[in-house]
Nucleic acid binder design. Structure first.
Lengths: 219, 219
DNA sequence: AATAAATTTTAGATGAATCTAACTTTAGAT
DNA sequence: ATCTAAAGTTAGATTCATCTAAAATTTATT
């Protein structure tokens, strides 16, 4: 029960990496956490002793059930806080990540669950990433890219699939925000420029790339 | 910019102790933080080098302007979070302290100020302690002990002057909560048993001691 | 298969925050 | 005024998370 931040960050990183590969590599953890591999090796030994990971020298590692549940819990808190900051405190999408990196370590199940409750048990965060429930279960999101919508249809903006600050700021600039009602009027067959409007407003165009990175919920 | 938790906790403790005595003693800090005096001495040297305190060996220490402003900021955040937890997330008075001990270290002025805003720039927290404003200024609270109210008058419960969990739980039990309208019907001259009612409800009695520890705002 | 390249681990060091034990200074009691 | 108790400091050790440099292992290339 010491400085659990560090340990929690390792478990979160390992969980994320596990989604791509069964076995996780030392270097990938080091890169994700911006530290040296040697440091990671040290920590892996400790995590293995605590039975949070299963680790074989030179071979790679994976999370135990116990380790996974801690990792998932951190992700749950991170995403709930992000949504909270955007929905309740009116932060913009691109401003919340850093603050949530801190808030995710607050230890109080009661707090996490009440947050969940006042947000109405959300299934995904402002970036469209799924929020696991209190038991660590991810419901899969029904969100689809805007580019997959039919012409003349309407949907609700539920997230983005590109997390970079420039992109998020661009969305702010053109006036696309979480929860907005978005309508596709037409799509140019040649370059797939989308003519859209937000909340019944004025029509304007966005590129194919942007349309692919905006996630929406249809009906 | 390292693990600022520790340093922040020292500055907070020193600020609190400064309210009682001009010069703060090593042992008092040690007791407040539940660590050994030797440890405190070490830290005092570091704080002095950073110009956060003015320190003379064997003589005691006091905060510099810079140190004070960090200490006050932590207290501001602590109290804002406590109020947030009680008002917005429906926690009880006695449940929020520990969580606020963690939340007070979240670094984001923007977050702190928005919290302040959605709480409507409160002047005191659920325990009746004053909340400094963004410039570190404490407005003095107009709260008085319930025992100082006139008979037949009404006021709003604004805090407590005894912070202990048993007391707070007792208040929950008898149904006294922050923001309640409280009416004094009579006070027994012999033992100062107070006959009161909450929000126009049924009359009941509380002891002199309890009445002294409930803070209220009159009109 | 032999060797080079990349990855991972080991060994040894550092700084932060803590401890215990021993020493020093200040303050209180007679 | 002297002595003793309390308070405060120093010295040396420990644990945690990190580092660099060097050694070991695995993987890739010719």
């Amino acid at each position: 029960m010491k400085n659990s931040f560090t340990e929690e960050n390792y478990l979160k990183a390992i969980f994320k990496l596990s989604e791509k590969n069964e076995l996780v590599a030392t270097t990938d953890i080091a890169n994700m956490l911006n530290i040296r591999s040697a440091t990671v090796t040290d920590m892996l030994k400790k995590l293995a002793i605590k039975k949070l990971i299963r680790y074989e020298k030179y071979k790679g590692l994976y999370l135990t059930e116990k380790g996974r549940s801690i990792g998932v819990k951190i992700i749950r808190k991170h995403r709930l806080w992000e949504l909270f900051l955007v929905q309740k405190l009116k932060f913009k999408w691109d401003e919340v990540h850093e603050i949530a990196e801190q808030l995710e370590h607050i230890q109080s199940d009661e707090l996490t669950n009440r947050l969940d409750e006042i947000l109405d048990f959300p299934k995904s965060d402002p970036h469209g990433d799924p929020i696991p429930d209190k038991n660590g279960v991810f419901g899969k999101s029904r969100a689809i890219p805007l580019s997959d919508m039919k012409s003349k249809s309407t949907a609700i903006v539920s997230g983005v699939s590109e997390n970079n600050a420039t992109f998020l700021q661009y969305l702010d600039k053109i006036g696309v925000a979480l929860g907005d009602k978005i309508t596709i009027h037409s799509v140019e067959p040649y370059d797939q420029l989308h003519r859209i409007s937000i909340n019944q407003g004025k029509e304007f165009s966005i590129s194919k790339t942007v349309a692919q990175n905006i996630l929406v919920l249809v009906k």
